[in-house]
């Protein structure tokens, strides 16, 4: 996606400059920006390495496991139809905790694993649905997360759990926006940390909106 976007930005910039006689300024701007990117990276090395160092201390001490245990009640609330002890719950909690801590590289593999496990769960539901027949399920023989009257989605279609998981994931869960603090510091902010509180409040709002939306949609 970045390929198209980048080409679009470069080409439209150059064409626009040609029509407005700004070509000299564009060359100057390109050179200055490239240099600025290097300065920015250099000054970010300190704070980013410090932060990844601290997070690694936490990760090796088993912080993710400890925190994901604390997440269990929330997961039961978000995913009432995933049977207790299902491997998907473990992957989802690792993904969420990694996102909270800002460990992007640890979040994605766990997230993709969660998606696969959710797909397997839906496959089990399809099998159970086939075997038991709609009538048995309507009578309330709920197993494998099958609810009376709720039929599984067909293949290639996102299950309720997948939708909820992704909406919560995309709603942003990050506790401390370390990148942003580094950028602000680099551009001469008087108080780079001032973003921490508002960012957390705004993240809480976006996540709550996401959860509310999921709850309403999966209840319909």
């Amino acid at each position: 996606m970045l390929n198209g976007l980048w080409a679009f930005m470069m080409l439209i910039g150059l064409v626009w400059a040609a029509f407005h006689g700004n070509l000299a300024a564009v060359t100057e701007g390109a050179v200055a920006s490239a240099g600025e990117a290097v300065t920015l990276c250099l000054s970010m090395l300190g704070i980013m390495s410090f932060w990844t160092g601290i997070l690694e201390v936490g990760r090796r001490a088993g912080l993710m496991e400890q925190l994901s245990r604390g997440l269990r009640p929330l997961l039961t609330f978000l995913f009432p139809r995933i049977p207790a002890g299902h491997p998907a719950l473990q992957s989802i909690s690792v993904n969420m905790i990694a996102n909270v801590l800002g460990l992007g590289w640890a979040a994605t593999p766990a997230g993709l694993k969660a998606m696969q496990e959710l797909e397997e769960l839906e496959e089990e539901r399809r099998a159970a649905w086939q075997e038991a027949g709609p009538r048995a399920i309507r009578r309330g023989r709920a197993s494998k997360g099958l609810l009376p009257g709720v039929c599984p989605v067909s293949r290639g279609c996102a299950s309720d759990e997948m939708c909820t998981f992704l909406v919560v994931n995309i709603s942003s869960l990050q506790l401390i926006p370390v990148n942003m603090i580094a950028y602000r510091a680099q551009y001469g902010s008087q108080d780079p940390m001032a973003v921490v509180g508002p960012a957390l409040a705004a993240t809480a709002v976006s996540t709550l909106v996401g959860i509310l939306f999921c709850k309403i949609r999966s209840a319909v």
Partner: peptide
């Protein structure tokens, strides 16, 4: 650099 080009143009 791309944003710099957009800005300067």
């Amino acid at each position: 650099t791309a944003v710099g080009v957009l800005r300067a143009s």
